[in-house]
Every structure is written in C-alpha cells, then in structure tokens.
Design a protein around this nucleic acid. Structure first.
Lengths: 189, 189
DNA sequence: TGTACATCAGTGAACGCGCGTTCACTGATGTAC
DNA sequence: TGTACATCAGTGAACGCGCGTTCACTGATGTAC
C-alpha cells in the first residue's frame, strides 16, 4: 500500500480534529470539505476514503468537539476546585480562542436544529457536565447541588456566548467578570 | 403604478417579518431568498425591488428580530414584575416556539461571526435588556442591581438555549424550571 | 534476497444542484392632456 | 370624462459560483513467490 494503516488513521483523526476546531469557530454549517482537506494538506477528492459523507464527518467531529471540551474536572492529576474552573471558563483567553473552546457553548444554537445523533451526543455531554459541576459544589443535599449545577452551567454558557456576541470589549469583559465573581461568591464550594 | 406605495411598503415589511421569524428558527445563514419570497407569496426575482442584497435584508431583519423581542418590560399597560417575566421567558411555550421567540438567545452564537452592523444592534439590545432587567430588581444599589441583571440575563439565555439543544424533554423541562425558580428565589425583586 | 503483482490513500477533473444576483419583460395603475 | 402614455412591483428565465459528491487515475508500499 502507498500508505500504511497507521498513516491512514493519523490522517483520519487529523481531519476530524481540524473539523472539530472549525465547527467550534464557524458552526455546524461553517465547514466546507474543500477548506477542511486543504487545511489538512490534502485535496478534496480524498475525503471519501475516510468518511461516508459530510454528515458522517460532522457527527464524528461533534463527538470529538464535545468530549475534549472544557468541562473536565481533572487536570494536572488533581481535581479542580469550582472557583478555579469558573475562572478559566469565563476568562478572556477562553472567550478569544473559539477554535479551542467549549463546544457546549459554541454549538448550543446549532444543535437544536441538528440530526438526532448529534443532539444525543450533546445531551449526554450535558449530563456529564452537570455531574462534574455538582460534584464540585458543597451544598447539603443532592437536590440543591443539582439545582446549583444547572444554574451555573446555564449562566456559564450564556455568559460566554454573550461575551462573544457583544462587540463592545468593556461590556464583554464586564459580563465575564460579573458572572464569574457572582457564581463563585454565591455557590458554596 | 401597478402597485401603490402603500402596497410596496406592506410587502417590504411582510418580507422582513418573515425573515425575522425564519432567522430566529434557522439562524442567519438558514434563510434563502427563494424560500423567503415564496413564503411571502412572491417570486424570487422581485426581491431586489425591496433590498439591495441578501446582507441588507438580514441586517434589517436582525434589527426587527431583536427589537420586537422578548425582553419588553411593559405589557398590557403595566410593568411586569421580575418573577412574571422570568416565568414567561423560561416557559415551555417560549422554548417550543422559536419563530416568535427571543432573538437575543437564538442569535447569540451566530452574531459573533456576523458583520459589525448586526453586532452593534445586538450590543445595543444587550444594554437595553440589562437596563430593563435591573429596573425590575430591588437590590440596594445600582452596582448590585447591574450585577444581578447580568447574571440573570446570562442564565436566562443559557437556560433557554440548553433547553432547546437537549433532546431529552425531562432534562429540558428541568433546566427551565430550575433556573426559573432559582433566579426568582435568589434575586430580590 | 530479488522481482512481479496487488492494494488503496491520495489526486484532480467533472458532475448536478441550489444559491444570490441580473435582466428583459408584463401589466395594473397613476398622471397628463 | 375619456384616452394615451409613463411608471415600476412583480415575473420567470438565465448567469456564475461554490458546494458535496463521483470517478478514472497514480504511484508508493505490502505481499507472494
């Protein structure tokens, strides 16, 4: 063979990784096969040696974008505290780097119009994220922790989205800072 | 003239209204001129008697979608209370009718990639919405009211977006109900 | 080890399609006399 | 009031373009002997 199986697998995952980045930046409809393959250093014709269709690639890329997302609780070998996590999530650096950012926020609007497969992946990731968030909180009972996790998740994805949408940097910074401080102050962790 | 000026103005605003609805449902890129004109009962060729380009129509429709949005504080001749407003905003009915819903939430992700004109409209609407929300709140000073308004706005658009994205109806209902109750309980109004 | 063959990831031209946009045309109505 | 003309919202065919997809081909490498 002209290329080994390892080469093929490497190409495949490279294309998926690029697609995951571009989907976070430009949405589910913002990625063309030609652009994608060019960014991977290939020509567009080879695409179908790796994926049955554009939809199949998108489904795979959504899965990757969601799971290597920004709701991990473990980093550098230890659990993150709630405050540490919120500060990173609602940072200017996270806002200004959509390609490597939280797909959970970036895809929120697109997913409601996406095929069932992608919506299912999104829903599962929502459950995981709520689980991780509630495990960082210190409220007395499960019910309170879950309610707080839902409020925190909503406020975080909303604040990140608003901070990106608004064209005034001062207002954008204020949104990030205010939601970050308010959540850290009001939710026991 | 074959059609009076009043007829033309009526057609113009009808097309814009349809575009505003479709944009809320399908996003800024989800509206084709042919579909739009067909829904208005016309053929696609006449579009350019009313708009210089697709972008011009989108800009106008974004303006309409944002300003006849769901952050009005006055209805039926009196001010709404914070609790009343939140309950309507985070209702299942609002979630399930995207075409007539809050463009502020529906366009959040799209707007960050949109031309400056649309982003400016969005930013102004954000300011207005924060003003209206903070005027409903009863915290002691302006600074606290503004911080609470920012948290409430973030949580509301986030919760509405998540509730639409998630494919499990129970989880979706839980998100709406939890954020609604928590905001009403924790923010003085 | 050397040689002939098979494999298949990647190439690049070509396709059909829907899109935004243009344009010559139509015909109902307003205006001028 | 009646008639001839001008206007212009709306029509529908046509355009160029980018897209997803197909396909005959290439050529480097694995396999069989």
């Amino acid at each position: 063979m002209g290329y080994s199986q390892a080469d093929k697998a490497e190409t495949h995952s490279r294309v998926v990784a690029i697609a995951a980045k571009r989907i976070r930046e430009a949405g589910l409809d913002g990625v063309s096969i030609a652009d994608l393959m060019e960014e991977a250093g290939l020509t567009h014709g080879g695409f179908y040696k790796h994926f049955a269709s554009r939809d199949a690639l998108v489904a795979e890329a959504v899965g990757v974008a969601l799971t290597d997302g920004h709701f991990p609780s473990k980093r550098e070998g230890r659990e993150r505290t709630f405050a540490e996590f919120i500060k990173v999530y609602l940072s200017e650096a996270h806002r200004d780097n959509p390609g490597a950012s939280c797909a959970f926020s970036a895809l929120m609007n697109d997913i409601s119009r996406a095929p069932e497969e992608a919506r299912t992946l999104y829903t599962e990731e929502a459950r995981r994220s709520l689980g991780r968030l509630s495990s960082m909180l210190a409220a007395d009972n499960d019910s309170d922790r879950r309610a707080e996790a839902i409020l925190a998740l909503s406020a975080m994805v909303g604040a990140l989205g608003l901070a990106r949408a608004v064209s005034d940097t001062d207002l954008s910074d204020e949104i990030l800072m205010t939601v970050s401080e308010t959540l850290i102050r009001d939710l026991p962790a």
